[in-house]
Amino acid sequence: MQTPAPFEYERAGSVDDALALLERHGPEARLIAGGHSLLPMMKLRLARPEVLIDINDLDDLAYIRLDGDAIAIGAMTRHAELLDSPLLAEHHLVFREAERVIADPVVRNRGTIGGSLCQADPSEDLSAVVAALGAELVVRSRTGARTVPARAFHTGPYETVVGDAEILTEVRVPVRPGAGSAYEKVERRAGDWAIAAAGTFVTLDGDTVADVGIGLTAVGAPHFCAPEAEDALRGGPATEDRLAEAARIAAEHTDPSGDQRGPAEYKRHLARELTLRALRRSVARARGEGV
């Protein structure tokens, strides 16, 4: 069995503790939460941090709660908790639908939202969800906290704005009264990474699309979102033709790369097809139709 290269292990008892450890050990230190992305990379020796800072004791970062006009999700909240959360299901079904197809139930017992977002895999599901919902991410350092829009969080594949001595502590998802949302994913097999996936929300004012968010993953959509498509849809009627046009625009702005999951043209096709499907169901849900 594959084994990681040697490293030093530290366990943080608090966020401040973790920040202090990060500062002390410098850029070769890595935080480890669920570890289900990092440890396999370390076993393959594709990642070799010198120090691992275990933040699994930071139970105070595991929460999902209503906080003003947002749902605040602690970065250490596990996927299983996100899947089971009645609060998230009530406001944003897209979370539940995405969580249902992230890895598998046992992995979801360990993996965290913070870890998933910070790993910044270009096929990561929650990156598309938080991009679609226009979430804000709270990043803390020793000197304070800053809030980063989800759509500005990722700076490239496996790269985020989180600095060497910073921690993502919270994800703030706006409550959007009346919103309908949905997640559509195609994978090669249960538990596999997405070939392509789309998460969307829609709010309606009568039959007019008052607001819309479109998130895409695994298809090279800049910042996991499709603002051009949102602009095209927002402010007009939620007709099938207009949803289809928005889906077309969303796909047009993707830049997928071909791999064993499929050729670029197929992924672009999926971007369009899945965006359309997600939008349809989001609109139906916004209309109060049970789908």
Binding site: R188, G262, P263, Y266, H269
Partner: peptide, 22 residues
């Protein structure tokens, strides 16, 4: 017959699956 292979077949051009074509 992965989703991609099935979709390509529907387009009339299924791919070789023994060598990397994408």
């Amino acid at each position: 017959l992965t989703p991609a292979q099935v979709w390509l077949a529907m387009q009339g051009r299924p791919a070789r699956t023994d060598i990397a074509v994408w």
